[in-house]
Every structure is written in structure tokens, then in C-alpha cells.
Amino acid sequence: MKKLFAIITFLLFLEKNLYSAEAGMPQLDPEYWPSQVFWLIIIFLTIYILISKIFIPKIKGSIDMREDKIRKDLEEAKTFKEQAELKLNEYNSLMETAKIDVKKIISKSRQKLNEDMQIKRDEAQKNIDKEILNAETEIKKFKKDSFNKIKSISEDITSNLVKDIFGEDLNKSSVEASVQQTIKEYQKGK
């Protein structure tokens, strides 16, 4: 401030010398002081009343409206978020129960399947055993039959051979005995 004043006074001095004009301060001339105060009061009062009664409420209204809107939006967003979280939790719990159910169903069906398979296998085994037994008895029977048949055939063949070669019948019992013996020898040699 002091510097500024020094510069001003210096410049004023300079100007006075340069242009040799009267360099008074019109501000200190009291001629129009009442007029300035009067008009200042009137004009300032006017804008004060207009600003305080009309413009400030309006500006405040628009700022409040914006803040209200922002707050409301934020609250809405919050509630939406809460709802979304609730839904997510619901979904998660649903998924959890569904997973458990699925596991249960899978294990149950597997067990059932295993049981079924076991039963089917057992049945099949039984059938196979039965079939095998039947087949074995049949084979045994067939073996027995075939042995007796072979015996009688070989006796016939022997008696026929003897008859053809020697021209006379042999005693049936002796033929039987010799065939018996040959079979025995054969079985032994085998």
C-alpha cells in the first residue's frame, strides 16, 4: 500500500509537471457527497431486496433440488443394491440346496443302479449255473449211454466178424467178456 501510494504521488507529481493541470482529488470535493450516498442507498437497497427476496430463494431452490435429486438417487441405488444382494443370496442358497439335491439324487440312483445290476447279475449267474448243470448231466448221461452203445456195437461187430471169418456162432457171453477185457485194456493203455 505504501509503495503504491508513493508511486501514485510520484506519478501525480510527474503528471502535474508534464501537463501543468490542476491535480486535485475529485473524491474529496463534497459537492456531490449527499447525492452519491443517496443514490447508493436507493440502488443498493433495491438490489438487496430483489436479491434477498427473489434471487437467493431461487438459487437455493435449484441447488436444493439438485441435492435432493442426488440424495434420492443415491438412496434408490442403495435400496436396489440391497435388493440385488438379497436376490443374490437367495440364488446362492437355492444353488446350494440344488447342489445337495443333485448329489443326493446321483448317489441314490447310483446305488439303485448298482443294486439292480447286482440282482440282474445274480439272476444271470443263477441261470448260467443251471444251464451248466443241465449240460453236465446231459453230457454225463450221454457219456454213459454212448459207452453202453459202443459196447453193444463192438460186441455185435465182434460176433459178426467171428461168424464171417470162422462160419460159426460164438457163445454170446464169451464175446461179451473178451470185449469187456479189450475195453479195459484200451482204457488202461490210454
Binding site: E31, Y32, S35, Q36, W39, I43, I47
Partner: peptide
């Protein structure tokens, strides 16, 4: 003396601009 002056005029101009 309460005459309207150039000072008053510029007060009015400022007020009107506001």
C-alpha cells in the same frame, strides 16, 4: 443537492447487470 450523476448512472448500470 441529490442530483443524478454519472456515479449514480454507473451504480444503476452495475445493479442492472447484476
Amino acid at each position: 443537492n441529490l442530483s443524478f450523476t454519472n456515479s449514480s448512472l454507473f451504480m444503476v448500470i452495475s445493479a442492472v447487470l447484476i
